[in-house]
Each structure stands twice: as structure tokens, then as C-alpha cells.
């Protein structure tokens, strides 16, 4: 397959993915915004006023980066896991598998679709946040880099979940029992400085903790983690997850008999 054919195939997958989540916008784009708005109103505004400052910032300012990151993580993951599993469930994945599209183009296409939804929801949440607080970004390039890389990581993770999933239950187990606790314990609502030393070390084992804090550093200029260390973690996750996805596709796990 020539490079221009691969590019057309890649565009086709991405357009199909974007069309899919745009068609069901009431399920994909609206709920995260409502949920995040409630977080702003309840935690940021009502509870936040009593909390005062966190990490040297008003509580509302403090939670905004975490909430944006939370929406990007959840939506990147859920777009890929639901779309790829739905392709498997309806057997429309066979359209792709019988075609000459290389595995890496298939994977990249789904990842780009996941990123598109994650970033679209992230952008909507950011605009929503502007109604509640003044938002100025300290390090724009770093902010963009960390959100893109995080979106890639969770799109890849969603892909692996979808490959192994055999039922609709299987695509909700990981988000409910693994992803959500990791996000909530990843420093979205609090600074790790408040934690006792033992729990601070435990937080250090949670990769989402690094992503949230690096993103917070990009926006507020303050972080609980070493930024270089955070980028290294993101890089390692991308390499390991990408290689695993390609290996699974080559083996045909969950998609070929």
C-alpha cells in the first residue's frame, strides 16, 4: 500500500470516528460538560469558598486543570473502547481487517478518533471553566504537550480494553473500577502536600497523579511533581501501550479466529 493510500485510509478511519461521536453528541459531548459544570458549582463554588486556598491558589482555580484533564482522560478512553468494541460487536471490524490497511494505520486512526473526542470535550470544559474563574495559561506549549500525550495514553489503554472485551460489561469494568478511582486519587481535588508521607508515596505510584500535576503546572505554574519525570512516564506508557496494541493486532487477539 502506497503512502498516499495509507493516508487516505487513516483519514477515513478518523472521519468515521469523528462522525460517530458527533452523531451521538447527546451521549458523548453533553454529559461530560454537565458533570464538570456540577463539579464547578458544587466543589469549586459552594464547597470551595469554605476551603479557601489549595496549593497557593483559590480552590476553584486549583481544581480547573484537574477537571479538564479528567474529562480528556475519560473521553479519550471511552471513545476508543466503545467504538472499537462496537465494531467488534457489529462485526464491522471485518471491513477493516479484510482491507489492506496496515495495523499501525488502524491503531493510529482509532487513537486519533479518541484524541479528537477527548480534546473536543476538554475544549468545551475549558470554555465552561472560564465562566467560573479567570483562566490564564502559564506554559501553553507544555500544557498542549501534556494533554496530547495523556490523550494518546488513554486512547491506547481504551484500545487494549476493547480488544479483550467480550461484552458491554467488559468495557465498563475498567473505567468504573480502575480509571475513576485513579483519577479521583490523582490529585484532581487536592494537593499531595496535604497527604501523610505514606500516602504521598502511594500517590507517586499513580500515573494519573503525574499527568494532572504536570497539566496543572502548565496552567497555574505550580506542581507537586517533577515535570521531566512526568514526561518520561508518559513516554514510557505510550511506547509500552502502543507496542502492546500492535502485537495484539498482529496476533488477531479478540478479532480473528
Amino acid at each position: 500500500m502506497f503512502a498516499n493510500h495509507k493516508l487516505i485510509a487513516f483519514e477515513t478511519i478518523v472521519i468515521k470516528e469523528v462522525r460517530r461521536f458527533s452523531r451521538i453528541w447527546l451521549q458523548t459531548l453533553v454529559p461530560p460538560v454537565i458533570m464538570i459544570t456540577l463539579y464547578f458549582v458544587i466543589f469549586g463554588n459552594m464547597v470551595g469558598r469554605r476551603i479557601g486556598e489549595m496549593g497557593g491558589f483559590q480552590y476553584m482555580e486549583f481544581i480547573v486543570p484537574g477537571l479538564i484533564m479528567m474529562s480528556v482522560i475519560q473521553n479519550s478512553y471511552s471513545n476508543v473502547v466503545s467504538s472499537f468494541f462496537s465494531h467488534k460487536f457489529q462485526r464491522s471490524i471485518e471491513e477493516l481487517l479484510v482491507s489492506p490497511v496496515p495495523n499501525y494505520v488502524i491503531l493510529t486512526g482509532f487513537i486519533a478518533g479518541g484524541m479528537a473526542r477527548g480534546l473536543a470535550v476538554g475544549a468545551i470544559v475549558t470554555v465552561t471553566a472560564m465562566f467560573f474563574t479567570d483562566l490564564s495559561i502559564q506554559y501553553p506549549l507544555l500544557t498542549i504537550a501534556v494533554i496530547l500525550l495523556t490523550s494518546i495514553v488513554f486512547s491506547l489503554a481504551g484500545f487494549i480494553n476493547a480488544v479483550f472485551a467480550n461484552s458491554f460489561d467488559d468495557i465498563s469494568i475498567i473505567p468504573t473500577f480502575v480509571l475513576t478511582p485513579l483519577i479521583y486519587l490523582g490529585g484532581v481535588f487536592y494537593s499531595s502536600q496535604l497527604l501523610p508521607p505514606f500516602w504521598r508515596i502511594v500517590s507517586g505510584l499513580n500515573p494519573i497523579f503525574y499527568m494532572v500535576n504536570t497539566f496543572r503546572y502548565g496552567i497555574l505554574g505550580s506542581s507537586d511533581v517533577n515535570i521531566y519525570w512526568a514526561f518520561l512516564i508518559l513516554g514510557v506508557f505510550i511506547v509500552v501501550l502502543y507496542s502492546s496494541c500492535i502485537w495484539l493486532l498482529r496476533r488477531g487477539t479478540g478479532i480473528r479466529s
Binding site: M1, N4, H5, K6, I8, A9, T12, I13, K16, P100
Partner: peptide, 15 residues
């Protein structure tokens, strides 16, 4: 139409 167009895209056919 989208189903057929998508399949054409997988084979690298220009739009």
C-alpha cells in the same frame, strides 16, 4: 453511501 465510501477509503481510493 457512507458504508461504501468508507470501504473505498480503506483501499486508499481518492474521494
Amino acid at each position: 453511501q457512507d458504508i461504501v465510501m468508507t470501504q473505498a477509503g480503506y483501499y486508499g481510493l481518492p474521494r
